[in-house]
Amino acid sequence: GSSGLPPGWQSYLSPQGRRYYVNTTTNETTWERPSSS
């Protein structure tokens, strides 16, 4: 899909309704949208 996220990243919603991002390669999580640069 065209999520616009860098490879390996997925976006999720927290129980509070906030969006966060997870790097499935490194298990890093961040509130900031990852850049593909």
Score class of each variant (00 low, 15 high):
E32S: 07
S36L: 14
G8Q: 05
S11K: 04
S3V: 14
Q10P: 01
S36A: 14
W9E: 00
T25H: 12
S2K: 11
S2R: 10
S11A: 11
P15K: 09
T25R: 09
P34Q: 01
Y20G: 04
N23M: 01
R18S: 08
P7Q: 07
V22G: 01
T26M: 03
P6M: 04
W31T: 08
T25K: 11
S37P: 13
N27F: 10
W31R: 04
S2D: 14
E28L: 05
S2H: 12
S3Y: 13
S14P: 01
L5Q: 03
Y12I: 09
V22A: 04
G4Q: 12
S14F: 00
G4C: 15
E28C: 10
S36T: 12
L5G: 02
G1M: 11
S2I: 13
P6H: 03
T29S: 10
W9A: 00
P6Q: 04
R18T: 12
G17N: 05
T24D: 07
N27P: 03
S35D: 13
R33G: 04
G17S: 02
V22K: 07
R33A: 11
P7N: 08
T24V: 11
G4L: 10
Y20Q: 02
S14E: 06
E28K: 05
G8V: 03
V22T: 06
P6F: 03
R33T: 08
G8L: 04
L13N: 05
P7I: 07
N23V: 00
W31N: 06
N23R: 01
L5C: 05
S37A: 13
G4S: 10
T25W: 12
S11R: 04
S14Y: 02
S14M: 02
W31A: 06
T30I: 09
S35G: 14
T30F: 11
P15A: 09
T24L: 12
T29E: 09
Q10W: 07
W31K: 04
S36H: 14
R18W: 05
S35N: 13
P15L: 06
N27M: 13
E32I: 12
Y21G: 00
S14L: 03
P34E: 01
Q16K: 09
Q16H: 10
P15E: 10
E32A: 05
Y21W: 12
L5A: 04
R18P: 03
T25V: 15
P7V: 08
S36I: 13
Y12S: 05
S36V: 12
T24W: 08
S36Y: 14
Q10L: 15
G17R: 01
E28Q: 06
R33Y: 14
P6N: 02
T25E: 13
Y20F: 09
P7W: 07
W9S: 00
Y12Q: 08
Y21K: 00
S11D: 07
G4N: 10
P7Y: 07
G1Y: 05
N23H: 06
T24M: 11
R33L: 11
P15N: 07
S14K: 01
P7K: 07
N27D: 07
S2N: 14
G17K: 03
S36P: 10
S35P: 12
E28H: 04
T29W: 15
T26L: 05
Q16T: 15
Q16M: 09
T25G: 07
Y21Q: 00
T30L: 09
T25A: 13
S11I: 09
N27W: 10
T24I: 12
G17Y: 02
P6Y: 04
W9H: 00
L13I: 11
T30K: 07
T30P: 00
V22R: 06
S2V: 14
G17V: 00
W31H: 07
R19K: 09
N27K: 11
E28D: 06
Y12F: 15
G4H: 09
W31F: 13
W9F: 03
P7T: 07
P6I: 04
S35H: 11
T24Q: 10
S3N: 14
Y20K: 02
R19H: 07
Q16R: 08
L13F: 07
S37H: 11
T29F: 15
S11L: 06
S37Q: 13
G8D: 07
Q16I: 08
S2F: 08
T30M: 09
S14G: 09
Q10V: 15
Y21T: 00
E32Y: 11
G1D: 14
L5P: 04
E28S: 02
S35T: 15
V22Y: 11
T26E: 02
P7E: 10
Y20N: 00
E28N: 04
L5E: 15
Y12W: 06
G8F: 07
R18Q: 13
T25P: 01
R33M: 09
Q10A: 11
Y21H: 00
T25F: 15
L5V: 04
S2W: 04
N27S: 09
G4K: 10
Y20I: 08
S2M: 12
W9G: 00
Y12L: 10
G4D: 14
G1Q: 13
G8A: 04
Y21E: 00
L5S: 03
P34C: 05
W9Q: 00
T26Q: 02
L13Y: 08
P6A: 05
P15G: 06
R19D: 05
W31V: 06
W31M: 07
W31E: 06
S36R: 09
G4W: 11
T24Y: 08
T29M: 15
S37E: 14
S2L: 11
S36F: 14
P7C: 06
T24K: 09
N23S: 04
W9I: 01
S3K: 10
R33I: 11
N27Y: 08
V22I: 11
R18N: 11
P7H: 09
G8K: 03
S11N: 02
Y21V: 00
T24E: 10
R33F: 13
G1P: 12
E28V: 06
L13E: 07
Y12H: 12
P7R: 07
N27T: 05
T24S: 09
T29P: 04
S35V: 14
N23G: 00
S14Q: 02
R19F: 10
V22N: 01
L13Q: 06
R33H: 14
Q10H: 12
Q16G: 12
S36K: 10
T24A: 09
Y21L: 00
Q10G: 05
T29R: 14
R19T: 12
L13S: 04
G1W: 04
R33E: 08
P15R: 07
P34M: 02
E32R: 07
T26D: 03
S11F: 05
L13H: 05
R19W: 15
P15Q: 08
T29K: 13
T25Y: 14
P15S: 09
S3P: 11
S37Y: 08
T29D: 02
N23D: 06
T29G: 06
S37W: 10
Y21F: 07
L5I: 05
T26F: 02
N23F: 05
T24H: 09
Q16N: 15
P6G: 04
Y21A: 00
Y21N: 00
T29Y: 13
S3E: 15
Q10T: 14
P15Y: 05
T25I: 15
P6S: 03
P15I: 06
R18M: 09
G8I: 03
W31Q: 06
P15F: 04
L5T: 04
S3I: 13
G4F: 09
S37G: 12
W31I: 06
G4M: 10
N23P: 00
S2T: 12
Q16D: 15
S11Y: 05
P6L: 05
Q10R: 14
P34K: 01
P34L: 02
E32D: 10
Y20A: 02
G17T: 01
S37T: 13
P34S: 01
R33W: 11
Y21I: 00
S11E: 15
S14A: 04
R19A: 08
